[in-house]
Amino acid sequence: MNARTEILDRIRSALRDAPAVPEVPRDYRRSSELGEDALIELLTDRLLDYKANVFVEDAAAVPQRLAALLEGTGRYAVPHGLAEALFAEADAHDGGSGRRVTDAPGHRLSVEELDGVDAVVTGSAVAVAETGTIVLDASPDQGRRVISLVPDRHICLVRAGDITTILPEALRRLDATRPQTWISGPSATSDIELERVEGVHGPRTLDVVIVRG
C-alpha cells in the first residue's frame, strides 16, 4: 500500500466513531464602520507602534513626498506597474530617471542587483488599521515578492480607500491564490529575552505613505 492510501486509511479508521461536524459560530466582528479619517489615524498609530515611519499625503503631494524620502539615497527599485508620474519630482531633482531601476517582465532584476539598491518603492493591495498590517499581493504596482524583500528600505504607498478596519474585511478583498506578503512594521525579532528589536533580515526601515483621494 502506498503512503497516501495508508495514511488516509489510518485517519478514516481513527474517525470510525464519526464525530459530528460542528457549525462554526461566527459571532466575532466581521465588519465595521470607521470613517476615512479615523481609519488613517488608527493605521498610523499602529504603524508608529511598530517603529515604521508614516506620512499622510494628498495624491497630488505624493511625488514631492517621494522625492524627499529618496533624497540622499542611491539607486532604488520599482515594479513596472507603478505610475512613472509618481517619480516626476524625484527625476526633476536628479535630472533624469538615472537612480531608478525597474523590475519588469522580460527585464527582471537579479538578487544581486536588488542587493545593490538602497530602497524599493511599491504600492499595496489592502491594509488593516486595527493591526497595522499592509498586504502586498504581487499586482503590477507591487511587483514580485523578492523586490520588496531584499532592499534594506521599503517605501510603501497605501491608498486611503484600501484601508479596512479589521482583518475579516481585508480578507474579503483578497484572492487567496495570489502570492501574498502581509507586512506589519519593519522586520523584528523577540528572540532575545522576548524583547522586541526592529531590524533583522527583512527591510530594516519601513516608510509608509498613506495617500488620500
Partner: peptide, 21 residues
C-alpha cells in the same frame, strides 16, 4: 504567541507562481 497585534511578516503561496518565487 508574541503578544503582538500582528506579527511582522506572513507569507502565503499556492503551488508555483510563474516568474515569482
Amino acid at each position: 504567541s508574541t503578544g503582538e497585534r500582528m506579527n511582522p511578516y506572513t507569507s502565503l503561496w499556492t503551488g508555483v507562481t510563474p516568474d515569482d518565487g
